[in-house]
């Protein structure tokens, strides 16, 4: 076994260990505390959990590649809401009235294109102005949210299309549509990051940007593509979620960026870039969703979830630091 492999294994495995711990804890604690008679690890419950993981999970996959690339995207929540509005509103546009249910793919395409365009705009600004992605997306978080509100004021935008609802509520091989989307996205992004030139270059850029530039890798286009991907995924998340719910409030998606970043960091992706794993991010979102559901299961107020997740995030950061301390003789700076 090579040096470093064990600690890498421990780190990669940590999130799954945590999930197992959660499952055991909530199953046991549920026996004593649960308000319902159902076991926590009930199959239906777990399937539902996967489905509920999907909206954040899909975005988290995008955030992982953005962060591996050495950037961050705070605008995903606003992008999510704006794409949801485009989806629901375009279903009712008169020009598509003649299409019948044929409007569905058109509306989906419009929403997804909106997401790609918003992401591309972020990416282009980061690339061409050289302003830090944190500031660029902080700005567009406000800006995109402003567009959401300008669209329909503080009113919700609603349209229920029953064909869509049926599609979204369908189960195939036991899994819900949303779950399939999440699984598909996870596999696709894993493939992108581990098997394609773009993915490997994205790792290289985040890991050692100078080396990447000196080797002739064009940093800008890679960053831009990744921002387009996260825009697309935020839109896809909205499409999956709102096809079923049929109503979007202008505040929807607020704080999503924070939840998603939390999940990605829990999954072990470094803020400084260059390191991170898609599968671990999947574990990260699963862990958060489990926590939410588990705490509800044992009768804790749902409010406690935020508290627990925040503390866990800080604890993970602390543990990571302790593990990486080099020893007593280290320079105290």
């Amino acid at each position: 076994m090579q040096a470093g492999t064990l600690s890498t294994f421990l780190k990669r495995g940590a999130i799954w260990g945590f999930i197992v711990l959660e499952l055991i804890f909530f199953s046991v604690a549920g026996e004593f505390l649960s308000l319902s008679d159902k076991a926590f690890m009930d199959a239906g419950n777990m399937l539902l959990l996967l489905k509920q993981t999907a909206p954040l999970g899909i975005i988290a996959m995008g955030m992982t590649i953005i962060m591996i690339n050495g950037n961050i995207d705070l605008s995903v929540g606003a992008t999510f809401a704006l794409c949801a509005i485009v989806l629901l509103d375009s279903l009712t546009w008169p020009i598509f009235a003649g299409l019948g249910d044929g409007v569905i793919p058109v509306a989906w395409a419009l929403a997804l294109l909106t997401g790609i365009a918003l992401g591309a705009l972020n990416g282009l600004i980061v690339w061409k102005t050289g302003v830090d992605a944190f500031i660029v997306t902080l700005g567009s978080m406000l800006g995109y949210r402003g567009l959401v509100f300008m669209y329909n004021g503080e009113q919700p935008t609603s349209h229920l299309n029953w064909t869509l609802v049926d599609f979204a509520e369908a189960q195939w091989l036991g899994l819900h549509t949303a779950t399939w989307f999440l699984l598909f996205v996870t596999v696709a992004i894993w493939f992108l990051m581990n098997r394609t030139v773009h993915g490997r270059n994205a790792y290289a850029i985040g890991d050692n940007r100078t080396a990447a530039v000196n080797a002739g890798i064009r940093v800008g286009p890679h960053m831009m593509i990744n921002f387009m991907i996260i825009g697309f995924l935020a839109a896809l998340s909205a499409v999956v979620f709102y096809s079923e719910s049929g109503s979007v409030n202008p505040n929807d998606g607020e704080l999503y960026e924070l939840w998603v970043i939390t999940a990605v960091v829990l999954g072990g992706t470094k803020l400084t870039g260059g390191s991170g794993s898609i599968i671990s991010t999947f574990g990260g979102v699963l862990a958060i969703q489990l926590l939410r559901k588990g705490l509800a299961h044992i009768g804790t107020n749902t409010e406690t979830v935020n508290l627990v997740i925040g503390l866990i995030l800080i604890a993970v950061l602390f543990l990571d630091r302790q593990l990486n301390l080099k020893g007593k003789e280290e320079l105290k700076v």
Partner: peptide
Amino acid sequence: LSLAGELTVAENIYLGELPRKRFGLV
């Protein structure tokens, strides 16, 4: 050193010029 630690030896050696197959695959 100007290497990327999270990548393999091969990827570092061919940094910026990874051999490609169709569809941008390595």
